[in-house]
Design a protein around this nucleic acid. Sequence first.
DNA 1: CCCTGTAGTATCCTTTTATATACTATACCA
DNA 2: TGGTATAGTATATAAAAGGATACTACAGGG
Lengths: 121, 121
Amino acid sequence: MKIEPESCRVDDALGILVGKWKPLILLHLLKNGTQRFSELKRSVPGITQKMLTNQLRDLEEEDIIERKVYPQVPPKVEYSITEYGRSLEPILNAMHEWGTNHIIHKREKMKKENVGNERKL
Amino acid sequence: MKIEPESCRVDDALGILVGKWKPLILLHLLKNGTQRFSELKRSVPGITQKMLTNQLRDLEEEDIIERKVYPQVPPKVEYSITEYGRSLEPILNAMHEWGTNHIIHKREKMKKENVGNERKL
DNA sequence: CCCTGTAGTATCCTTTTATATACTATACCA
DNA sequence: TGGTATAGTATATAAAAGGATACTACAGGG
């Protein structure tokens, strides 16, 4: 069944996955289950606190992850994938697989192009 | 099989699909086969020439679409999905399906939240 | 001779994303 | 008393993406 371009909903899914860190955050939560804010921060090297908070808020708003606050000091906040959020897993897997293959595809294409260029010299 | 976050290739796939117009362009090419530049432009309302050229160049560079120039005046350039590009189709379909369902999911979540709020009044 | 259509470029401007840095409250520990 | 850890917020700035507009070449038609 073909998608009708006029009623395409690819962007709705795409919008949830884009953001420089979202796939990584989701992957960590899928792999390790519940994680604290600071654990996530350590798991995703290079991310700033602001970015991590932003991305987590985005995902929470879409009901992909759950945020649980423990009212204590120092603060403790746990994040986890929701049941609904798990429905993204097959898509992430498909994209990972495609991406892995794409790297190979590009390498092979470059090789061919280089051979072609050498012939032209 | 779980994806290892350290070697995640989701972004490689994501990078090809993101861009405000790429899914739509791909859908049109998948649905209608070969299309001229001007046909695509008409098919995607609101896109500027610059954006269309940019997105097409991006997709061409990744070997997802093919560009065929007919050396004539006025110019004629045809675009089509490559065989390799078709490997993205299942992912687009999965995202479209997920996105369609997500809209429903959100609507139902909002309904529940509103009921909750009414009770509080 | 001017107008139209094609497939672009070139330039400038606005909006969106991402990053860097500093700051907060408060319990616990030495 | 001062330092550490937690989960943030606030502010400023840089970089990337997107958009508006004008411009090009040249054949064919009136």
